[in-house]
Computed example of a mutant assay.
Amino acid sequence: MEFIIGVSTSFINVSAQETPMARPKNEKLEAQRREEILQAAARVFRAKGFHLARTEDICTEAGTSAGTLFRYFKSKKEIIEAIVEAEMKANDEDLLALAQRQAVEGLATLKAQELEEMLRPSGYGLATESWLELSRSPEGRKELASSSARLEAALAALLAQGQAEGWVRPDLNTKGAANLLLILYTGVQFDADLGMDLDYEASAQAISDLIKSFILA
């Protein structure tokens, strides 16, 4: 009995050793392929919009099959959600960059070329479409409101610090000013994203005048 058990165990061990192991995933290549699909989807969405674009269009643009695409994303909805999340993160980072003394003071001498560079689309070039997509649902509107409140608080805190340091007008309502600056930025950004005929020279001068007369001490 011991001999039989020993042989059986040996056979099992040899079989286990000879069984080929699954190849490990190359995480870098997986992430790269996922990003390529998102970039292709973004090009399709910019041309057709989120909801008129078809999964087949994305596959064609990405040069891949539906099977490969669905390895990375379960549906077109999931692709849209990934792009919206990335665009909102990039937008928050851009606005948080304004909540610095150097950035606010820089607006006082803003030039047309600098404004144009500031408003140039980044990420997937779908910022406005992403805002609108989020606004379609109650949950999305809550997310937008939360993001706006967080950014406004950061900017208001900077302006309050500026009052303490003497470079912001002491009688300025910091919360109201922060809200106004966010409205101004998002409004100009919205026009730029929609391809409106924006007069960068006049807009830059108006922003500069506003900062010097309304914000800075």
Rank of each mutant, 00 (worst) to 15 (best):
I215K: 07
R120W: 09
G63A: 11
E93M: 03
Y200Q: 08
Q39D: 07
D191C: 11
F214T: 07
F70D: 03
S15H: 14
P121T: 07
L159S: 02
V104F: 15
I37S: 06
M1T: 12
S147K: 10
P24D: 07
P20A: 07
V7I: 13
K77F: 08
V104P: 11
I215Q: 03
M88H: 14
R120G: 00
Q161H: 11
D209Q: 13
E117A: 15
F70L: 09
V44I: 07
L96P: 00
L144Q: 06
K175I: 03
A157N: 12
V188W: 12
L134K: 06
Q32I: 05
N173A: 11
E85Y: 08
A40E: 08
A204S: 08
S146I: 00
S147Q: 11
N173T: 02
A108E: 06
L95K: 15
N26V: 01
V104K: 13
L119W: 09
L144H: 02
R23D: 05
K74M: 11
T109H: 15
K212Y: 07
S10G: 15
S10Y: 12
L198A: 03
F50K: 05
V188K: 13
F214P: 01
E18N: 09
Q102P: 03
S213W: 05
E78S: 10
E18A: 12
F73S: 05
L134A: 05
L181V: 10
G176L: 06
S8G: 09
R33C: 06
R141I: 01
S203V: 06
K28H: 12
V44F: 07
I80V: 06
A97C: 04
F45D: 08
E201C: 01
E35A: 10
L107I: 08
A22I: 06
K89L: 15
R169I: 00
G162H: 02
G176T: 00
D94E: 15
I80A: 00
I58P: 04
A112Q: 14
S147G: 09
N91L: 12
K25Y: 08
A86H: 13
L180N: 04
D193W: 14
A204Y: 09
N26P: 03
E143F: 02
L181H: 09
M88K: 10
L29S: 05
A206L: 13
